[in-house]
Simulated scan of single mutants.
Amino acid sequence: MKPVRALVRHQLVWPAITLVLLILLDVAHRASFLSVTVLDGHLFGAPIDILNRAAPLVMVSLGMTLVIATRGIDISVGATVAIAGAAAAIILEADPSRVGMALGAAIAVGLLAGMWNGLLVALVGMQPIIATLILMVAGRGVAQLLTGGQIIPIGAPGYLRLGDGYLAMVPCSVWIAVVVTLALALLVNRTALGLFVRSIGVNPVATRLVGLRSGAIVFGVYVICGLMAALAGIIASSNVRSADGNNAGLLLELDAILAVTLGGTSLLGGRFSLGGTVLGALIIQTLTYTTYSIGVPPEATLVVKAIVVVAVSVIQSEVARALVVRQVKHLLTPARERASTGTSPS
């Protein structure tokens, strides 16, 4: 029973099962769902489309994971996505050849946004949700000021390749998300950063008393989160070939938080999983695709998403896991042994 109990309690099991169930639902609705073909030298199919659309969410969610692991939250990532896309679009509108400058401006926006949030949280001592709420509100206004309230078209081929281009028949955005995920995983697992983040999330007071500069670590994770949001803004604006200060990244912070929690990261801090976050982002994007493909009205999509999130969250709770372990143990115990020991399903 120990292997079964360990498997049930593994934080990646339930997100993986949820993703598989969604895929099976899509296959049942459309048998060709998993089919991938080559069209004009590119891979084409529903799985490729889901991976492509999930790339910005994956990057934002990875940054959010580290923030939540330190008992924080960043609800300004959607606004940062909008500002980054707007900054790049303004430069490209003046000169489409300045792709490097546009990318640098977008990344600088993300770093400044992360530094601002980190300054308010780590040094000033503001509550994370209040500190990032400031940028969430003001940042959306800044994005609209930069774009003049208009949608700025982007026509620079070098920039557009990042969002809708292909490399080795796979969308460039997917490659970028993979590289970012691997880089962040190496940073967390091959350096002391992961240990420091976990220790701050478990007990920030004790961490400070043993001499760890917890303020610098918290400041750093907000900077990383801002950088991830900027990269997502580049991909998103490149994918739609425009910058929209009003709608770009709208409600993205909510999807990112959902992806993090679905992946098994604790909102109480300390426990996090980058792999689980990637699964959570894929769950959300697959769920969005599923609701549209089976004919769920757009206005009911958020309700369906909420139901799935509640179901997965309940399953991931310790009480639900203990109940599953007891039921599995009961089913695997021979009837004669149950009768002799008086074991019951409850």
Score class of each variant (00 low, 15 high):
residue 95 D to Y: 06
residue 128 P to Y: 07
residue 204 P to C: 07
residue 253 E to N: 04
residue 75 I to W: 10
residue 21 L to K: 04
residue 104 G to L: 06
residue 262 L to P: 00
residue 339 A to H: 06
residue 200 I to Y: 01
residue 67 V to Q: 01
residue 51 L to E: 00
residue 154 I to K: 03
residue 62 L to Q: 10
residue 170 V to Y: 14
residue 251 L to P: 03
residue 143 A to I: 10
residue 295 G to S: 09
residue 89 A to G: 05
residue 330 H to R: 12
residue 245 G to A: 06
residue 237 S to N: 10
residue 13 V to A: 14
residue 300 A to L: 12
residue 120 L to S: 08
residue 181 T to Y: 08
residue 319 V to T: 15
residue 297 P to H: 10
residue 271 R to W: 13
residue 1 M to R: 11
residue 62 L to N: 13
residue 21 L to E: 06
residue 76 S to K: 02
residue 341 T to A: 09
residue 128 P to F: 06
residue 172 C to Q: 14
residue 259 A to S: 04
residue 235 I to C: 03
residue 144 Q to K: 09
residue 318 E to V: 12
residue 4 V to F: 10
residue 55 A to H: 00
residue 4 V to D: 15
residue 255 D to W: 14
residue 61 S to T: 07
residue 51 L to S: 03
residue 135 L to D: 01
residue 221 V to F: 01
residue 233 G to M: 01
residue 186 L to S: 15
residue 223 V to P: 03
residue 334 P to Q: 07
residue 126 M to E: 07
residue 92 L to D: 06
residue 47 P to W: 07
residue 104 G to P: 08
residue 66 L to S: 06
residue 93 E to I: 11
residue 32 S to N: 14
residue 144 Q to N: 05
residue 330 H to P: 12
residue 95 D to T: 08
residue 331 L to A: 15
residue 344 S to T: 15
residue 322 A to C: 09
residue 8 V to I: 08
residue 331 L to S: 14
residue 132 T to L: 03
residue 54 A to Y: 05
residue 170 V to H: 10
residue 277 T to E: 04
residue 267 L to A: 14
residue 168 A to G: 06
residue 203 N to C: 09
residue 69 A to T: 05
residue 213 R to K: 13
residue 191 T to C: 05
residue 81 V to K: 01
residue 8 V to E: 07
residue 280 G to L: 03
residue 317 S to E: 14
residue 20 V to P: 09
residue 163 G to V: 01
residue 52 N to Q: 12
residue 331 L to P: 13
residue 148 G to W: 05
residue 194 G to A: 10
residue 282 L to Q: 08
residue 220 G to W: 00
residue 290 T to Y: 08
residue 180 V to P: 03
